[in-house]
Design a protein around this nucleic acid. Structure first.
Lengths: 211, 211, 211, 211
DNA sequence: GATGAATGAGACTTCATTCAT
DNA sequence: CATGAATGAAGTCTCATTCAT
């Protein structure tokens, strides 16, 4: 897609870029996107000038952070979606060996695993999305690409899970996404209470099963 | 608790205060809390000076908006909680008259009704909460008061619903609150798709039932 | 043209606006348009905020300064153009009373007077024009209006002077404007040498006469 | 004056220096002196580091550009001045052969030719001068040297032209310089209109002749 | 009391200059 | 020596808050 316009990037430059991305992820998530750029630069141990050399705009930095997150998620969902469809993927034969601690019990394990992945890696993403949407950046190429990929993987996983009778058929992509961001928000404030987190997942997953 | 210690407030002043509160609610919700104070003043049809006379700080205005919301929610949950416990409230005897618009069908109707109320009146509250939390204002008196009341009503409703076997017993207040904010977020983006909203509620409610 | 959108402007606001305009004229002319806004604000005795309340952009301030200059010039050239054409304006009859120390000597006095006016009030305008042009602001309404007026007045004066045989007929508006800005530049550095200034005017004026 | 005290400069270094000078001349003239140094480096096909190795300061680069221009002008005026004074230079005897492209017809041809040279090679110099002056660099050695030379040549040419009766005697060096920069400015905006340019020269030259 | 002009700290961004590669 | 990444001072503009009208 973009093959030649980015030269290899000098060693130190690459390191600084990585540091900035890490610092931005951390700072944006914990202190909100209103945090001054200077703060992020300081957290990354570089000057503001360096920040702006790598990301020409605060918004661009924001986007880069999101893109990285989305890409990670897309990678994970891709694996799950491929596995689930591969013949033999997700314990293919009939003999319900199961045992998958409640996550499914009747196919759809990959779907629920993907749901977890998306939720767990989306922490803090909420505010980012809002910010970008507000800036009218909805369709920035990179974002769009990863977003589309994730959407596609989830669609396949959802369909498979419904075929397997693991998820109620009324649920479509719209509801799925709403539940994903909702669960993300719910779980976000339960960082330190794993039991509560598990229970929230259980409630949502049970609610998604056919009734 | 504090009802009368502040002097009655002249008629026009009261009207301006009300206008500001309404405008702020609207503007903060639709355009985000970063909207300049001047915008809010304009929306309310008053000057900035007036805004700052009524609310010494932007943060104070934010808080006032939230307090009003919480109070409304508290009023609604109070009624539901009282009803549910009153002898005969929520069809007390065994004869499942039901008929409660599908909300449950086996006790717990008041609880689920309260869940809906909280979610539906909380739209946009999310960002407010974050903002206030960020400002270290977590325990501002007024907020705390209404918050406590709501928490108490919900606790009673939850207990009743669990006694009636309508809600799984593992769910405690922590999970309930997480699910409330989560569902609020989920539902927020489904403003224009009532069917999807309903389905989200169905999923969450079904998930809350004993399994 | 614009009648109602500008409210009367409070007394202090009007004073500050005037101060800012004066300070900007002074500062831009003497220290160049690269002078920081803060300098101008300080020179005007107000805060930067005030400057930006009155002129939303540095460029807007620049434009306002220019507009005022152009308007002054337009007023002066208007008077001269009208006078020259009024029956009896500029000693209408044939009897070359002359005596006008070289400024004309054969009609065209109004034209040469206008030339002087434009040059003398244009000091420093040069850099402004360049700056505005660079900013792609060439056709900003107000500027355009005054500019057009001046152009029109000068066209009439030039025609009259040529009819009177006071100016060579080959000269058109293009050359006239070029000579105007050229003479402005020439004269700008002769601020403190009135005799030299006069001589420059003499040279240009003599050159403009039929040969 | 300073020709050899700096070591010879390696071949590639010399080429880079030349490229930078050319690029700077071009860029400063077309896009203004506010153009970032990086732009100039890119135009020259080198890195910024190289630029700053050759010219320790942006201002130094600016000065170098000007010096080169002034030197070119000085070379041209030198030739003209020498020619005019050499016995037989500029058709010394009385027999008005003229033929000198119409520039004068009565001696002073070299003077007017020099005037043209200065004007035509000064395009864009205006902004440079201002910039340097603003930076308090008025008397930088190199600039001064070439400037002095030009001044001297012009003084000789002017004197000769006045002796020949081709230029009015009131005009001194002060007025001459003012007219030079003025004509430069006038002519600058007439780049694409040769006829208008010629007419401007004609006006100024006629104005300079005795009246 | 209401108004909106004034204020100035602070945000984002640019760019001349330095320095590691 | 060349390169271009890093730096941070400085510039333009915003906005919560104060205060004269």
């Amino acid at each position: 897609m973009n093959g030649a316009q980015e030269r290899p990037l000098r060693a130190d430059a690459a390191r600084n870029r990585a540091r900035l991305l890490a610092a931005a992820t951390e700072v944006f998530t914990t202190r909100g996107i209103a945090t001054p750029t200077e703060e992020i630069a300081r957290a990354a141990g570089v000057g503001v000038g360096t920040l702006f050399r790598h990301f020409p705009t605060k918004e661009a930095l924001l986007e880069a952070v999101m893109v990285r997150r989305l890409e990670e998620i897309a990678t994970a969902t891709a694996r799950l979606a491929d596995n689930a469809e591969r013949p033999g993927g997700e314990h293919a034969d009939g003999e319900r060996t199961d045992g998958d601690g409640g996550e499914d019990g009747s196919g759809g394990g990959a779907f629920f695993a993907a749901f977890r992945v998306v939720v767990e890696r989306s922490a803090g993403k909420d505010e980012f999305t809002r910010a970008l949407a507000a800036a009218g950046v909805d369709a920035h190429a990179a974002l769009h690409a990863s977003g589309t990929a994730i959407r596609e993987h989830l669609a396949r996983l959802l369909a498979a899970a419904q075929r397997a009778g693991a998820v109620r058929r009324e649920v479509g992509m719209v509801e799925l996404f709403a539940l994903l961001v909702g669960t993300t928000t719910a779980v976000e404030r339960l960082q330190d209470d794993p039991a509560a987190r598990e229970l929230v997942f259980t409630v949502v997953f049970d609610g998604l099963r056919p009734h």
